[in-house]
Structures are given as structure tokens and as C-alpha cells.
């Protein structure tokens, strides 16, 4: 089955302000695509046009080949979305609010309750199933909205800053949900201004700024294409390192630029080069038998790329 989101000459203007400037992209297949840009860059406006909340000034949005503006009902059948943080009718319970969406989406009455319980378990809100939504916090409402996006098991999911308003634990839980959805053969388009989040969750990234698409590619390719020469990695050791061990580390590691010791067991390292050098550094540390327990890119890469793109293309 084809999974596609297509923007054809898509533009949106507000008086003289161009919020979205001639987007032409076809996102295809089961994957998670990050929609990355700073606040006010046009992410939400684009997602609103994808979900019928807003009409384009020019161009079209096609979902699985169906034009959202011309055949909204048909086009949105296969989409689940959470755009901004909507309010839900305050005197309804999650059970009722989700039942309403389930019925609108044509889920058979027999399987509605089962589905509702399933999605509420998924977003960890099952204990609140019969409580009034008006009393919920912003984060809890966000979870209900995500649950409503998942209710009919859609093939395509659009999330607009899905972790916004959540505490760190909640953010992590939502990211895990999105990661698990990736494995179920879905196409996910997720807007964010958090580079770290996009790096963790997404396979590909669309970078935008000031209503213009800067690039669309896999994260690895984008980093290869645009990253600066210097990258960062975080390393954790089982036991504190002595001063002599630290000196050895500086002496032995290739292409090292700087070492920032967080404490005696954790260090942030800047090196010159890409993945190959990173691999060599890891191999060397393992050989040195220092008890390495953590080796993680510090994701300065994507940030660097993004900053470079903004500087060069806008």
C-alpha cells in the first residue's frame, strides 16, 4: 500500500508575509520524517494545510494521492494528527472524547471500547478514562490528543511538536511511542524545533526556515553533506579515571581537538572528522581497556548542519 504525503507548489501567505513558500516534496514509504525549523518557520502552517485546518494560498497537499482541499473527507481517512495542543470539550471524559472521534472515523461500535482502552494504555492515560478532561493538565490533554490520532490505526501520522508541554518523562514516553509506531509500517511526519529529538526519533529530515525548504534527506546524508569538520561525542567510564589515564587518552586518541571533563567518569570530546574517525576513537578507547560504558554522539552534528544551512541558504 502506498504511503505518501505530497506538497505541490504549496504556498501560504498572510497579507504580504509569506509563511510557506512554494514547497515541492514527496514523502514516501514507512518512515519517520522530522520537520525541523525554528519557531515561526512555517512548520505548523504546513501541517494545518495538510489537515484541512487551513487552505493553501496556492498549490496542493496530496495524501496518498488524494487532494486534501478538494476531497477532505476521503483524504483524511488515512491520517491521524495532533496539531498544536487542542482543547477537548472539558465536560467530556477521555472515553467519550475518543468515542466521538472513533465514531466519526467509522470504527465499528463493537470495537470502539477495545480500541479506546488500547490507545489510552499506549499513552499511559488509562487510569483517567472516566475523569472529566477539563481538569487535566496540558500534558495530559496532549496525551489524549495523541491517543485520538492513533484511534483508527492510521497509516500516516502528523505530529506537530508532540512533546511540547510535557515533562522530561512524558517527552521520553511520547518519543518511545513514535519510535514504536515506526516499526508498524507507518509514515510519520513530526515537526519539531528540537534537534536532539529529531536526531533520536527520525530517519529523514526536512529542514525549513522562513517558509523555505532548506533540504530534505536522510539524517546521515545531511550530516555527511553539510556537517562541519568537527564533531562531538560523549563518553562514559565505569570507574573514575586517574590523571595518568586522562593524559594517555589525550595522547592516544586520533584527531582530537578538545576534551571537556564533566566529572572523573564522563567526558565530552570534540574531534576532527566524520563517522570513520568516530569509529576509530571508539576502537582505541576499547583497546585501552578503560572500562567504557557509554559512547554517544552529542548531536552537535545536526545542529551544526542546521546552523550552516541557515547561514548559507537564507
Amino acid at each position: 500500500m502506498s504511503l505518501t504525503i505530497e506538497w505541490v507548489n504549496l504556498s501560504k501567505t498572510f497579507d504580504s508575509f509569506i509563511a510557506v513558500n512554494n514547497f515541492n516534496i514527496k514523502i514516501e514509504g514507512a518512515k519517520c520524517v522530522g520537520f525541523l525549523g525554528p519557531n515561526g518557520s512555517g512548520k505548523t502552517t504546513t501541517l494545518k494545510m495538510c489537515t484541512g485546518l487551513m487552505n493553501p494560498s496556492a498549490g496542493d497537499v496530496l495524501i496518498n494521492g488524494i487532494n486534501v482541499q478538494k476531497e477532505k473527507k476521503k483524504a483524511l481517512c488515512s491520517i491521524g494528527s495532533a496539531v498544536e495542543i487542542p482543547e477537548i470539550y472539558p465536560y467530556l471524559t477521555p472515553r467519550e472524547a475518543l468515542m466521538m472521534i472513533a465514531k466519526i472515523r467509522g470504527i465499528s461500535p463493537n470495537s470502539c471500547t477495545k480500541k479506546i482502552i488500547q490507545v489510552l494504555q499506549e499513552v499511559q492515560m488509562i487510569d483517567w478514562i472516566d475523569k472529566r478532561i477539563g481538569k487535566f493538565s496540558r500534558g495530559m490533554k496532549q496525551r489524549i490528543v495523541i491517543a485520538s490520532a492513533l484511534i483508527n490505526n492510521p497509516d500516516i501520522l502528523l505530529f506537530d511538536e508532540p512533546t511540547q508541554g510535557l515533562d522530561p518523562r512524558g517527552m521520553n514516553e511520547i518519543r518511545e511511542i513514535i519510535k514504536s509506531l515506526k516499526t508498524k509500517g507507518k509514515l510519520i511526519l513530526m515537526s519539531s524545533h528540537l534537534l536532539d529529538e529529531v536526531s533520536q526519533v527520525c530517519d529523514e529530515v526536512i529542514m525549513i526556515d522562513h517558509g523555505k525548504i532548506l533540504d530534505y534527506d536522510s539524517i546521515t546524508n545531511i550530516i555527511k553533506k553539510f556537517a562541519g569538520k568537527n564533531n562531538w561525542v560523549e563518553i562514559g567510564f565505569e570507574n573514575p579515571l586517574s590523571n595518568s589515564m586522562k593524559t594517555n587518552l589525550i595522547r592516544e586518541l586520533p584527531k582530537l581537538i578538545t576534551l571537556e571533563w564533566i566529572d572523573d567518569r564522563n567526558v565530552k570530546m570534540q574531534y576532527q572528522g566524520g563517522f570513520e574517525i568516530s569509529s576509530k576513537i571508539l576502537k582505541k578507547i576499547v583497546e585501552m581497556n578503560l572500562g567504557i560504558i557509554n559512547y554517544r554522539p552529542a548531536w552537535r552534528e545536526l545542529e551544526d548542519v542546521y546552523m550552516n544551512l541557515i547561514k548559507t541558504k537564507v
Partner: peptide, 8 residues
Amino acid sequence: GYYIIPNP
């Protein structure tokens, strides 16, 4: 509206 409108 953000809850209901993005539905079919």
C-alpha cells in the same frame, strides 16, 4: 476545532 476538524 483543532481536535475535530483534522478528521474525515
